[in-house]
Design a protein around this nucleic acid. Structure first.
Lengths: 334, 334
DNA sequence: GTGAAAGCGCTAACAC
DNA sequence: GTGTTAGCGCTTTCAC
């Protein structure tokens, strides 16, 4: 691998001049610029970013640590991040913690060691990872989920309101016993969506106790949770599921047990799913402005890099109910 | 940020000793090890990976450049890669080229500049990116799609055979005019799946010409392609779609035009979809061993890093037809 | 077993 | 406008 000195020798200039040319300084003689560029091309020279980063003590890489790469929610979010990042001159690398706090800690450690320019994280709940991040000088933005006890810039949707809307929607449709499947304690989306559900429920005062199952945010978890609801003493006639993957699992469980949706079981899932309108019955969801979430997070990160001090911002975007067939109570079907 | 010298001073040893302790050299006095570790903890010292990478001229990061982060195919693949990488002591960062050759080139350039330990790439077709990669000393493994004219380690499925099986399956089911929606020219999966389709078709000699639409590998492309097939002079009664996202688009188009599947249109899609069995009709697919693809690619990369020279390996895994309802021709429905 | 010193490749003062 | 020089933080000979 040729170094900047090889280029300098080839072009008959100093390494400093090569550096200037490559970094777009305008105080260089056009003739020299040409010579340098020729040498660069001939040698196939590629600047060593590691050396540059060390010298500058900064990098142009953002780490985006997401809790599940298989979740379509993150797809659009990441696109939003990438679009802003690119414009601001950063490259985005994705790290998949897979809902595993240990993996999350590994990636946080890597991002810090590698002196990444910034981190955007959807926490899988590791307090240790959060602490490392907040103790470091590296700018952090929390997205989708709050950082455990974290004073950081944050972009989320109004989870509580969205969950409340979904629950009321089921009650309004005529379902009488609405259950809730939510995620792990300590993960903000799980807790807030649960709170939205319980608030809506207690406001309507339906008979019986709230029926709540906590599991992980994954498909298998949703499947198992639905299974336990089906065999519970007072079986629900509707369920609000707090994320998309668990909703898929719940639907699969209902299909396996020949439970008809929406006649025997109404279903609303949090998070949009790309094919929600293709399944039969089509799936009622609470949709988030994913792309916009990503954009906002990226903008906050750009700002935070420019201004490290200052009070953390907190952006709350609205979530929106998309009523479809899976929550359409049918009297004659009962 | 404390440096290794701060730790050395605090512990009353030299920086070299700190380095030895942190890198697990056994030739260090246990008492010193203890002092160093205490100092590390007290100062909250975190080694600067950038400096280490520069000094060692190697890193422990792999770049996995995938063509579409929204494609569930890559989800499982990435998990396979991560599991092997972690065991071998590497961290994986994902780069999303979004089927955009320009973005791909950007990420390849970043991976090379950052001196990544290795690259696993699902090419979106950029010859320039491929050339940069192959000209560099960094080990590369192509996954899912061959690198344009690339002599690199490669892990793919038998696309031609899989496409042939899918096409024959439709013909055997009784469909008479089977069309094909495939991806961009120059992307190996698009070309090979098309070839598998045409071979199977010509072997069966159905009436009429093959009906082929090329588009990108994205959902909207599939939607548009299906639309043009529906309005073509000799409208097909079945379609083989060469990837999952385009299949979703095609299904959506069929739904929008009230075309009944499988009665009026048989559908088989390449790539499994997590919810293929949840849609009605359920979707016939050609499934790939995604996790295994990822594992193999990662193993090849580990080997290649250990042994940079030597003939490139080429691993071809089988794809498997999963017949479901969308390809079940029904005589009485016609 | 431990420390001193050199240097990975680059950039940014500083001098001219 | 260009070159010389120092040094980013670490690892790794090489002495001792």
């Amino acid at each position: 691998m040729p170094t900047i000195y090889d280029v300098a020798r080839e072009a008959g200039v100093s390494a400093a001049t090569v550096s200037r040319v490559l970094n777009g300084a305008r105080t260089v003689d056009p003739a020299m610029v040409a010579r340098v560029l020729t040498a660069v091309r001939e040698l196939g020279y590629r600047p060593n970013a590691v050396a540059r980063n060390l010298r500058r003590s900064r990098t142009t890489l953002w780490a985006v640590i997401i809790s599940d790469i298989g979740n379509p929610f993150f797809t659009a979010t990441v696109r939003g991040i990438e679009d802003v990042a690119q414009q601001a001159g950063y490259s985005v690398v994705l790290c998949n913690s897979d809902e595993d706090p240990a993996k999350e800690e590994t990636y946080v450690a890597a991002a810090l060691s590698e002196q990444m320019a910034g981190v955007i994280i959807s926490s899988s709940g590791s307090a240790k990872a959060a602490k490392s991040l907040l103790d470091s000088p590296i700018p952090v933005v929390a997205i989708d989920r709050q950082l455990p006890r974290g004073e950081a810039d944050t972009v989320v949707v109004d989870n509580e309101a969205g969950a409340g809307t979904a629950t009321r929607h089921l009650l309004d449709a005529g379902y009488r016993r609405v259950a809730c499947i939510t995620g792990p304690e300590g993960v903000s989306t799980a807790d807030l969506r649960l709170r939205g559900y319980t608030s809506a429920l207690s406001a309507c005062q339906p008979p019986g106790e709230p029926l709540i199952v906590r599991t992980d945010f994954r498909e298998q978890g949703g499947y198992d949770a639905m299974g336990s609801l089906l065999s519970s003493a007072e079986r629900p006639d509707a369920v609000f599921v707090a994320n998309n993957l668990m909703t898929v699992g719940a639907l699969r469980c209902l299909a396996d047990h020949d439970v008809r949706v929406p006649a025997e079981m109404g279903v609303v899932g949090f998070d949009e799913i790309p094919w929600a309108d293709l399944v039969r019955p089509s799936l009622t969801t609470v949709a988030q402005p994913t792309y916009e979430l990503g954009r906002m997070a990226a903008r906050l990160l750009v700002d935070r890099i420019a201004t490290p001090a200052g009070r953390p911002a907190r952006v709350v975007l609205p979530a929106e109910l998309r009523p479809r067939q899976s929550s359409a109570f049918q009297h004659n079907a009962r």
